[in-house]
Design a protein around this nucleic acid. Structure first.
Lengths: 152, 152
DNA sequence: CACTCTATGTCAGAGTACTGACATGAGTCA
DNA sequence: TGACTCATGTCAGTACTCTGACATAGAGTG
């Protein structure tokens, strides 16, 4: 079914499957984070800050895969709510290093439990070998997409 | 680095890597589709219709991983621009089967070429064995995320 | 020093996708 | 037949993310 030469067969397209998997993951995460009043980007930002305190707005944006404008708005909200702190003025350049407050850390802890349950569920039924295989393949895809631009 | 027991280590999280890969794919697709004035969802809709003519609004929404409200708005735009056609009234129930117009098909053809180049680039450096492995693993992740709700 | 380039933080506006809500049609069951 | 459930199409409002634009700070170069 579906003429082969014409379009991209969605049934056998790895890109389509990747989108489907990502969509399912996002939906599952939103589901468990919603009761905590937290979005995926929201959570990503806090988790990044827990592991690498002092990250700047732009660095957080890259880590959460959004633009720095989007992250800027989110940080303003988080700061207003008392989850993170930023110095009023930059010590060097324009970079404002961000840090979690105790309140932000508590908020993150609950979210981490929720997200970990999703991650565990996703990994269920996969062997260790398959997991490392998935890692290698995803990294390969990312690498090929990133710098395959200029070489055509 | 980064206390192990506390959070989810983003460096070794398959979920994070999946998000990164999906983000890279989306960015690459947007880049090649933008010159054609087409978004990823836009393209997904046309490709779905090419392979399965007569799909309803809700079916298209599920296939493109958006809500049916979002797809409805998109279909209204596509219909206004003459890329798709829908009957004014449903022959059975409320379902309005959608079909590509010749114009929509021409538009899709150009997009397909662009998207195929991205997909090819993504698959570059992967063996056939790795490709089928990636398929199996992604399907496993999707399956686990979908119906792992109630059993937990 | 002056010039250029790059990166950053930020504001404003536009676009996209979502949730909520309503009416309608089909199927099931008593 | 009537009540109930489910899926669909659609409208309206909201939330999130993006692009565009600007000013500023540091590095490199003449």
């Amino acid at each position: 079914m579906s003429q082969d030469g014409a379009g991209i067969n969605l049934e056998t397209s790895l890109g389509y499957l990747l989108k489907e998997a990502s969509s399912a993951l996002r939906a599952a995460m939103e589901e468990v984070l919603r009761p905590l009043g937290m979005s995926v980007t929201h959570y990503s930002c806090l988790e990044l800050l827990a592991q690498r305190p002092g990250l700047s707005n732009s660095e957080l944006a890259r880590g959460a895969f959004v633009t720095r404008q989007t992250m800027n708005v989110l940080l303003q909200t988080l700061e207003r709510e008392g989850h993170v702190t930023r110095p009023a003025e930059a010590r060097v350049g324009k970079v404002l290093p961000t840090r979690l407050t105790p309140r932000g850390r508590r908020s993150l802890e609950k979210a981490t439990v929720a997200v970990r349950s999703v991650e565990d569920r996703m990994l269920a039924g996969m062997t260790e070998t398959e997991r490392s295989g998935a890692f290698r393949i995803l990294r390969s895809m990312i690498h090929s997409l990133r710098d395959g631009n200029d070489s055509a």
